[in-house]
Amino acid sequence: EEERTFTNEEEARKAKKEAEKRGLRVTVTKDGTTWRVRIG
């Protein structure tokens, strides 16, 4: 499991799409101005 943080919503969405392409489970949460993308 890996967690990545982004300040840019577009980049967070891109990371989510890429992980889904690899067949991984992805959770995206917004924490104030930060987007957290949890993969795995």
Rank of each mutant, 00 (worst) to 15 (best):
T27W: 09
R13L: 15
A15S: 04
W35D: 01
K17R: 13
E20S: 03
G23K: 02
E10N: 09
D31K: 05
G40M: 14
D31W: 06
V26N: 00
T7R: 07
W35E: 01
T33L: 11
W35L: 03
W35H: 02
K21R: 12
V28T: 03
F6H: 01
R25Q: 11
K17N: 12
V26Y: 01
R4G: 05
I39E: 03
K21G: 12
E18Y: 06
E11R: 03
E9N: 03
D31G: 02
T29L: 09
G32L: 03
E11I: 02
E20M: 07
E2G: 07
D31E: 12
R4M: 14
R36N: 06
T27L: 06
K30I: 09
G23Y: 03
V37Q: 00
T29W: 14
A12F: 07
V37S: 00
T7Y: 11
E18H: 06
G23M: 02
E18P: 00
R25D: 06
K17G: 08
E20W: 04
R4V: 10
E10V: 09
K30Q: 12
I39G: 02
G32A: 04
R36F: 13
T7P: 09
G32V: 03
E1F: 15
T29V: 12
T7A: 10
K21Y: 08
I39A: 03
E10G: 09
K14Y: 10
K14M: 12
E10H: 10
K14A: 14
D31A: 05
E2H: 11
T27F: 08
E11Y: 04
T29Y: 13
K30E: 06
K17H: 14
V28G: 01
E10F: 10
A15W: 15
K16A: 15
L24M: 08
A15R: 03
R13S: 10
R22S: 07
F6K: 00
K21D: 14
W35I: 05
N8W: 03
T7D: 13
L24H: 07
F6E: 00
G23N: 04
V28E: 00
W35F: 05
T5K: 05
T7F: 11
R38K: 13
K16F: 13
T27G: 02
F6R: 00
R38V: 15
A12C: 07
K17Q: 14
T29G: 02
E20N: 04
E2M: 12
A19W: 10
E10Q: 10
G40D: 13
K14N: 12
R22K: 09
F6W: 02
E10T: 09
A15L: 11
D31Q: 08
T33D: 15
G40V: 15
V37Y: 01
K16T: 10
T33R: 06
A12V: 08
